[in-house]
């Protein structure tokens, strides 16, 4: 069975295939990663955990699957893999929002102060919003000279991580 996986640290999809070349020996396993074959041994220590022996190096793993996300703990490090849909990629849509014209909440928290109004001209690094998260204050500033397009929050509001707080139009 072939699986195509990507991670944040390694976004290019990697194809992984587990093979049993000898039908009479279920313990004879080969993993093909990105076209390269590795002879491996596997031992289950639980329903979602086990040992992998690869080039005589033994790794302990624990996994959890959640839809298209597979969480892997291996030798003290955790990795999140996305099972890549091999269907053709949608074009265009994902690019919007990455232009830096949105001020998003970097973490969940409460809006303490809104320092600008829609229509205001602001300079790069000018503070726009003061928010509080985990009892620490944080100032969100303009990424560049810009005009405030709209304010999407109110003082005292509880916001989620990545909620859009301010939209702006760059003037530089």
């Amino acid at each position: 069975m072939k699986t195509t996986l990507s991670t944040a640290a390694h976004p290019d999809p990697v194809a992984v295939e587990l093979q049993r070349p000898d039908p009479d020996d279920p313990t004879n396993l080969v993993a093909v990663i990105d076209g390269e074959a590795h002879e491996i041994d596997l031992a289950a220590t639980g329903p979602t955990s086990g040992l992998i022996r690869l080039n005589n190096r033994i790794s302990r793993y624990v996994t959890h699957r959640e839809g298209d996300r597979i969480l892997v703990w291996l030798d003290g490090q955790s990795y999140t893999f996305n099972v890549v849909d091999t269907a053709p990629k949608r074009s265009g849509a994902a690019a919007a929002g990455a232009s830096g014209n949105l001020i998003n909440a970097p973490m969940p928290g409460t809006i303490l102060k809104i320092l600008v109004d829609a229509g205001d001209s602001v300079q790069a690094h000018q503070p726009l919003i003061i928010m509080e998260s985990m009892k620490m204050e944080m100032t969100l500033s303009a990424p560049a000279d810009a005009v405030i397009n709209d304010i999407h929050c109110t003082e005292g509001q509880l916001v989620e991580r990545d909620a859009t707080l301010v939209t702006l139009d760059r003037t530089e």
Binding site: E17, A31, L42, I52, L54, S59, I70, V72
Partner: peptide, 12 residues
């Protein structure tokens, strides 16, 4: 992730 992590994910 090292190769073994990919294998663990594929096994999962």
């Amino acid at each position: 992730p090292p190769p073994a992590a990919y294998i663990a994910a594929a096994v999962c």
